[in-house]
Design a protein around this nucleic acid. Structure first.
Lengths: 116, 116
DNA sequence: TATATATTTCCAGTACTATGGAATTATATA
DNA sequence: TATATAATTCCATAGTACTGGAAATATATA
């Protein structure tokens, strides 16, 4: 993932309503969640919700699938994994005294620091 | 980490200049990087750079340490780990047919899906 | 066709954000 | 004290985002 694409995704996740929406979808799994269910769960006006979902779709964090009158929103797990990978990339690569990730990160070193 | 705090951090990372700064710091390691070095590396005007660094500091992604005339910017790895954890939390918790994370995520299931 | 359901698009006011030059503050040194 | 270095604060302009009611679109059913 390139920097611009990562920044776009992060910016969209950096809004409480959109982050709530995305988390609700991530929690829901691969089959997706109808817009109406999100609306009921998060109590957001339809026009506002639609606006935010569209932004998530535009940056590739969510896709939509129609089933008759219902639109399902599907979280894009690959995009999330790519984003998380990007944030960890090159962690401590320039560290002068090379202490190793174990010294840097208190928990789950491999998760936050892949140091290839 | 709560939702508001995660959204704040994500929003600050959702800007190409700030994301570049943060990555440069993450790459640099725990000892931190002087503001001037960031400026030289990323070629951003001082006032603009200062503004962006301040925003990263305000949400806890960066801390600063002064050494005589030089201000070092230190990335907060804990905050990054917390943020990544937040994004993965409750992944697929509501999934109806319970396929398990292996079916959901192509790579590193434990990373993206802890399903407690 | 008429009606109901699911969701989006339109619109416009308010508010926030980004930018960078100039002036300022903090610290060190001659 | 005068000067140099490191970085910040001030300021104003321009652009962008958030919000939600009302109207419009898409689809299903009686």
């Amino acid at each position: 993932m390139d920097l611009a694409s990562a920044a776009d995704k992060l910016a969209e996740l950096g809004h409480t309503t959109r982050l709530s929406i995305f988390r609700y979808l991530v929690k829901g799994g691969t089959q997706g969640v109808p817009v109406g269910e999100i609306q009921a769960a998060l109590n957001v006006p339809g026009s506002t919700l639609s606006h935010h979902i569209n932004r998530l779709v535009k940056v590739g964090l969510v896709k939509q699938r129609r089933e008759s009158r219902t639109l399902y929103c599907v979280p894009q797990y690959d995009a999330l994994i790519g984003l998380i990978g990007f944030l960890q990339e090159e962690c401590c690569a320039n560290q002068a005294d090379e202490p190793g990730c174990d010294d840097v990160l208190s928990q789950d070193c491999d998760t936050a620091c892949d140091n290839t």
